[in-house]
């Protein structure tokens, strides 16, 4: 589905790898490895300084950028909700493309395990976990095929993070989404992912089945990272 060929940008150095449809890829590694930077290349929030990125065989630079971003949804570490109600947030994306229908709100809130009565709540007044759920619903409202997640639970407490993970697990399965997720949490990686990309200093130094990577690391760096 996605193919990176010799991609460099910022800390990233000459990355080449592919991601297949419906794969659940976990990007992990020490801070400063370039994980979030890599994530932002998928939906062209950044463009590579060298190399090419292909989506279904076509250079992402050739896609109309807003249409590409609709297909490749992103959930950030902080919810970054817009001022206004939950509904204002959820319909933001579809309204851009003239695709919003009011009955969608209930369905989207159900996806993220929030009651439909939340529709008219002030987004600023929600708890951290609720905000992150709304942020997820806002991204899902665009019906993306690929979901990018940049440490979506890192600012949440353990219990809330686990609830978001439950949501994600069901959503990815039900919607048959391809997922690329940055995480520091190895349990989360094991639970949600089926493939891991371990990054250090802008390079992918291990790529494989996540469960095997975490039980049988092939590099000293990964072994050290797991121990820490």
């Amino acid at each position: 589905m996605f193919r990176f060929e010799g991609v460099s940008y910022g800390p990233l150095k000459n990355l080449s790898f592919s991601i297949n449809k419906k794969e659940k890829v976990m990007l992990f590694g020490p801070s400063g490895a370039g994980k979030s930077t890599l994530l932002f290349l998928f939906n062209r929030l950044h463009s590579p300084s060298e190399g090419q990125i292909y989506l279904e065989g076509q250079d992402v630079a050739d896609y109309e950028v807003t249409a590409l971003r609709k297909r490749v949804g992103l959930v950030l570490q902080e919810p970054n909700l817009f001022p206004g109600t939950v509904l204002d947030n959820i319909k933001y994306g579809p309204s851009i493309f003239g695709e919003w229908e009011d009955q969608d709100a209930k369905r989207l809130l159900q996806y993220v395990h929030l009651p439909s009565s939340y529709v008219n709540r002030d987004a600023e007044q929600l708890s951290g976990g609720e905000k992150q759920r709304v942020s997820l619903a806002r991204t899902l409202a665009n019906s993306p095929e690929i979901l990018l997640l940049d440490e979506p639970t890192s600012a949440l407490d353990y219990r809330t993070a686990e609830e978001i993970e439950d949501c994600l697990e069901i959503l990815i399965e039900e919607h048959k989404l391809t997922m690329v997720m940055v995480t520091h949490n190895l349990n989360q990686a094991r639970r949600l992912g089926d493939r891991g990309l371990f990054m250090v200093n802008g390079k992918i130094i291990e790529d494989g089945k996540i469960s095997e990577m975490l039980t049988n690391p092939q590099t000293n760096e990964l072994a050290r990272f797991i121990e820490e």
Partner: peptide
């Protein structure tokens, strides 16, 4: 910054992303 990135990633063009 975060809100702008969120808006752009949802498909907003710079003029609508910067409305706020």
């Amino acid at each position: 910054n975060g809100r702008l990135l969120a808006a752009l990633s949802l498909g907003a063009k710079p003029n609508s992303a910067s409305k706020l």
